[in-house]
């Protein structure tokens, strides 16, 4: 059951990322992800996100001081942002 649960959760997270990435905003805090899924335990979400990172569906983006998550296909090419 555990495996299916987490496959379901992973799919749910990826779907949510696609849905939320429709606009200009592509990068999200882990905090955003746990808010999208208020009924799921935070730690379970963290674990599922780590698996998605390992599998390459999600990628980290970091400003140096804070870290964001982004769908691999939306990872910005070779550039930084002005902040």
């Amino acid at each position: 059951m555990g495996v299916n649960m987490s496959e379901d959760l992973k799919k749910q997270i990826v779907d949510l990322f696609h849905e939320k990435s429709k606009g200009d905003k592509k990068m999200f805090y882990i905090r955003d992800v746990t808010k999208w899924l208020p009924d799921v335990d935070r730690h379970t979400i963290h674990d599922a996100v780590k698996v998605l990172l390992d599998e390459g569906a999600l990628v980290y983006w970091s400003s140096g001081s804070s870290t964001y998550l982004v769908l691999a296909e939306f990872f910005p090419k070779e550039e930084g942002s002005r902040s």
């Binding site: 990172l53 970091s62 400003s63 140096g64 910005p76 070779e78 550039e79 930084g80 902040s83």
Partner: peptide
Amino acid sequence: HWKHGGIVGVKGYGAGVIGRYSD
């Protein structure tokens, strides 16, 4: 003249690399 952030770069890691690019 720096642009901040980006690549975190190393397999399995989400920290330890701080991306910087010239503008």
